[in-house]
Simulated scan of single mutants.
Amino acid sequence: MIDAPVIAEIPIEEFLEQFRDPVLRTGLVQVAVSGLLAALVVGISRARGLALERELGVALVRGFVQIVAMGSIVGLLLTVELVWSGVILLGMMVGATLISKDRGAGLPGVVRVSFLAIAFGSGLVIVTMTAAGAIEASVRNLVPVGSMIIANAMQINSLALDRFRGEIRSNRATIEAELALGAPPSAVISRHVETGVRASLIPVIDSLKSLGWVWIPGIMAGMILAGENPIYAALYQFVIMAMIFGAGGLTSMTSSLLIGSHVFTDAEQLKEVGDEESE
């Protein structure tokens, strides 16, 4: 009982100590410079009438606040039990769902489908690679590596939903005509599902093609700077990219297949796809 207050105070002290580090001044200057470059993009967007300045501005501010908040509590996360890693990653999956579902606004069941797809795709990869030893079973490793996998699954899910919604809207008349001729919904929708999956995987496929040639990813660069064997750093970076590809592919395929089954009524008619989320 005597030691309990001391144990409780340690994380708070570690948390406050982060804000006293002189290196934060350098970081704030760097943030200001990068912020000016970002503001330039927002200004160009406004000048050209792209109507993206609000979304860009909100994304920048939101991203800054969220990443600083995460960085400030990393020290606290390192003091909690391993079981909390699952809770934290689950919370990230929920957040990823709420962000990703906006790209599929108007599609029936988009929230449920997005969560199931992201949880299945990223969760399976995280569990499998942790069991294989590629991700160390500790909060220090599970949370940051897991967050990368979840974030990329979210982005790929967003691309798949956006492309699938576009396919449905652009080809509605053709789809309804094929249904009227007696074609089964699964056959009618299959090529649109495939188009969404292919489109969503283009960025990660291009990243794999350029890996080590056009760019050296951050994890590999960080490991080399930390003194790791460059060959091992390269191997581990490939493992990370393969995990991202695996999680993204599973997420995209699951999402597209599930959402494809939600766009038809029990009478095998195509549902309306509006601008708002439909459950």
Rank of each mutant, 00 (worst) to 15 (best):
112 R>Y: 08
122 S>T: 01
159 L>S: 04
178 E>Q: 14
149 I>M: 13
129 M>K: 01
158 S>W: 11
135 I>Q: 02
151 A>D: 08
186 S>M: 10
142 L>C: 05
118 I>M: 11
142 L>I: 07
122 S>Q: 05
142 L>D: 00
179 L>M: 08
123 G>C: 14
126 I>T: 02
136 E>L: 03
114 S>A: 14
121 G>L: 01
171 N>W: 05
145 V>Q: 03
136 E>I: 11
114 S>P: 03
159 L>N: 09
129 M>Q: 02
143 V>F: 04
172 R>C: 10
159 L>H: 13
123 G>T: 12
180 A>F: 09
182 G>Y: 15
120 F>C: 02
177 A>G: 10
129 M>N: 06
127 V>P: 01
182 G>L: 15
181 L>D: 15
132 A>N: 01
175 I>M: 06
111 V>S: 14
139 V>G: 00
136 E>C: 02
128 T>P: 02
159 L>K: 03
127 V>S: 06
166 G>A: 04
156 I>F: 07
169 R>C: 05
161 L>D: 00
111 V>P: 06
146 G>E: 05
173 A>F: 08
144 P>L: 09
140 R>M: 05
115 F>M: 04
142 L>P: 00
163 R>Y: 12
121 G>Q: 14
127 V>N: 07
164 F>R: 10
155 Q>M: 11
171 N>G: 12
139 V>F: 00
130 T>W: 00
183 A>I: 10
167 E>T: 05
153 A>F: 12
139 V>A: 05
131 A>P: 02
174 T>P: 10
167 E>V: 11
118 I>P: 13
115 F>A: 12
144 P>C: 10
143 V>M: 01
140 R>G: 00
122 S>A: 06
128 T>K: 07
135 I>V: 04
144 P>E: 07
115 F>I: 05
141 N>Q: 14
118 I>L: 00
150 I>L: 15
161 L>Y: 05
148 M>L: 14
126 I>M: 01
161 L>F: 12
166 G>V: 07
178 E>P: 15
113 V>Y: 02
139 V>M: 01
165 R>M: 08
135 I>T: 00
157 N>K: 09
114 S>H: 07
168 I>C: 06
117 A>S: 03
156 I>Y: 13
186 S>Q: 12
114 S>W: 06
156 I>K: 10
120 F>A: 06
127 V>C: 06
119 A>F: 15
159 L>Y: 12
158 S>P: 04
175 I>Y: 08
157 N>G: 11
135 I>F: 02
111 V>W: 13
166 G>Q: 09
171 N>H: 14
135 I>W: 03
183 A>P: 10
144 P>R: 10
177 A>Y: 07
115 F>R: 11
113 V>A: 14
169 R>E: 12
132 A>T: 08
165 R>H: 09
162 D>L: 11
164 F>V: 12
140 R>F: 01
126 I>D: 00
174 T>C: 12
153 A>L: 08
116 L>S: 05
181 L>P: 14
168 I>R: 09
172 R>K: 13
166 G>I: 02
127 V>H: 04
148 M>K: 03
152 N>W: 02
125 V>K: 11
175 I>W: 04
156 I>G: 08
160 A>F: 11
142 L>V: 04
150 I>S: 12
133 G>W: 06
172 R>F: 03
142 L>G: 00
152 N>G: 11
172 R>P: 10
167 E>D: 11
140 R>C: 00
146 G>K: 14
119 A>C: 09
182 G>D: 03
157 N>T: 12
172 R>T: 11
147 S>R: 07
151 A>R: 15
125 V>F: 13
147 S>D: 09
